[in-house]
Design a protein around this nucleic acid. Structure first.
Lengths: 247, 247
DNA sequence: CGGCGACTTGACTTTCTTCAATGATCGTGG
DNA sequence: CCACGATCATTGAAGAAAGTCAAGTCGCCG
C-alpha cells in the first residue's frame, strides 16, 4: 500500500473541468450559486490528477491549506493511535467535503486515503474564506455542509452506541445505500470498495464478527455481500433491524 | 421533569450583559474580534433568563432560528428514537455552541435540555450569517467552532468504538476534565451534573455497567465518583487506561 | 503457478447485558 | 421539618453476545 503523497501534478485534461459541468454540483459547494459566483469559485479550485487506491490525500499533522471535495471514488479518513493503529472516522463519497476538521487547529487532524481510484477538487481555504465573505450563497452552503457533517456524526454515534452488532451493520449499509442513491447509483446494488477489516474498524467490531454478520444477513435474506458487491434484498427488514425492532 | 419550553421572557438584569465582560469570550464566538466588531455581535445576541434543570432549550423538529451559546451550566443534546427513547449525542459546557447541526436542515435535528441551572445566549442565525459576511474574524471563528465540533465528534467516535468499556469511561472523564479546566475549573475535582443513566446512554453502556466501572475505578485508585462529585486521583493511569495500555 | 494477505469458520473465553432486589437520594406535600 | 413516593444508584446471579485464538480457504498479484 503506497504511503506516498498525492503529487501536485496537474492533468491538463481536467484543468478545464468546471463546477458548471460537474454532475455532483448540486450536492457540493456550488449548490445554489448563480453563474458569476460559480465562475469565481471555479477559479480557485485546483483539480489534481486522480489518486490511485492506497494513495494519501493528506496526512494527520500536515499543515492545513485546503479542503478537498470528492469528485469520484472513495476516501477513508482515520486517526492514528498510539501504537500506530488506524482508527477510521469515516468513508467519503462524491460530493462530500473532507478536511473540515482541520480548520480549527490549522493542521490536519486525521489522514485521508483513497480506497479506489479517486478524483479530488482541492479548494484553498484562505481563498474560499475570502469568497465566503463576499458571496452569501457560498458562505451559507459551506455552513450547511459543515452542519450536515455535524448532524451525520451525531447520527452515526447513535448507531455505534448500540451494544448489539447487527443494527450497527444494518444501519451502515442503509447509510451507504442512501448516500449512493443520492448520487444516482442504485440503492440496492452497489460496489463497496471497503475492506472487511476497515469496515470492522469503523464499526468498532472484530473482523470476524462482521464476517459472521454478513453470513447471517445472507441466511435471513436481508442482503448479500460478496467480494465488495453489495445487494440489499429487503430494505424494510434491514431498516427494522437497524432500529432494533427485529430479532 | 418539566417539558416546557424556555419562555422568551427577558431578564432585565442580564440584558446589559455583554460579550466584552463575559468570562468565556475567549472560548466563544467573540474570540479575536476587536471592540467595534464585538459591539456589532453583541447587538444581535439575546440573553434569556436562565433555564432551570430539566427545561428544554429547543426540541427536535423546532424550526431553526438561532444558535445557542452556553454561558453557564450544562446542556445535553439528544435524538429521539422510534420508541420514544432518548439517545444522547453530547453534553455541552460553557463556551460551546449548540444548534449547529440544525443549519443544514432548517429545523432542529436534536433536542437540548438543561441538566442544571443554565444560562444561554441566543444568536439569531440569519443575523449572524449576515455579520459573518462582513466581519472576517467572526466568520473564521464560526468556521473554527464548527470545525472543532466535527473534530471532537470524530475523537469521541474513536472512544465509543472501543469494544471494552473501561477505556470509554476513562476517556470521557478525561475529556470532561480537560474541557472544564479550560474554563478555569479544577481538572481533578469537579461536579458533574450528569445522571448515571444519561452517562450510560451517552457511552452506549448499561447503567449497571457504568456503576460497576466507577466502583472498579475507585478500588484501583484511579478516580472517585460519588453523587456527582468527581475526583480524579491518577490522571496518568487513567490516560493509559483510556488508550487501552493498562490491564 | 506460487505465495501472501484477506476472509471465513469453529471452539473457547471474556465481557457486558439483563433481570431482580435492595438501598440511597431527591423533591413534594402534608 | 419530616414523611412519603418516586426515581436513581448499587449489587448479585445468570445468560447472551462479541472478542480472541487458531486453523483452514479463497482470491489476487506478482
Amino acid at each position: 500500500m503506497g504511503s506516498d503523497r498525492a503529487t501536485p501534478v496537474v492533468d491538463l485534461e481536467s484543468v478545464r473541468a468546471v463546477c458548471a459541468g460537474c454532475s455532483i454540483q448540486e450536492l457540493c459547494l456550488p449548490y445554489g450559486l448563480d453563474k458569476d459566483d460559480l465562475e469565481q469559485l471555479d477559479r480557485i479550485i485546483e483539480r489534481k490528477r486522480p489518486l490511485a487506491a492506497g494513495e494519501l490525500a493528506y496526512a494527520e499533522g500536515d499543515p492545513f491549506r485546503a479542503l478537498f471535495a470528492v469528485r469520484s471514488g472513495v476516501l477513508k479518513t482515520y486517526l492514528l493511535e498510539a501504537e500506530g493503529e488506524e482508527h477510521i472516522t469515516g468513508f467519503h463519497f462524491p460530493g462530500e467535503l473532507v478536511g473540515l476538521d482541520a480548520i480549527s487547529g490549522g493542521i490536519h487532524a486525521c489522514s485521508a486515503r483513497a480506497l479506489d481510484t479517486t478524483s479530488l477538487c482541492e479548494i484553498p481555504f484562505d481563498r474560499l474564506d475570502d469568497l465566503a465573505g463576499r458571496i452569501g450563497g457560498l458562505r451559507q452552503q459551506l455552513f450547511r455542509l459543515m452542519s450536515r457533517e455535524i448532524h451525520q456524526d451525531d447520527r452515526e454515534r447513535r448507531n455505534q452506541a448500540q451494544a448489539v452488532a447487527d443494527p450497527r451493520l444494518a444501519a451502515f449499509l442503509l447509510d451507504v445505500s442512501g448516500r449512493l442513491s443520492k448520487l444516482g447509483f442504485s440503492a440496492t446494488t452497489f460496489r463497496l470498495k471497503i475492506s472487511n477489516r476497515d469496515l470492522a474498524n469503523y464499526l468498532g467490531l472484530a473482523p470476524e464478527t462482521v464476517s459472521r454478520l454478513f453470513r447471517r444477513f445472507r441466511e435471513r435474506g436481508l442482503a448479500t455481500v460478496q467480494s465488495k458487491e453489495v445487494r440489499i434484498h429487503d430494505p424494510e427488514r434491514l431498516r427494522a433491524l437497524a432500529r432494533s425492532l427485529e430479532e
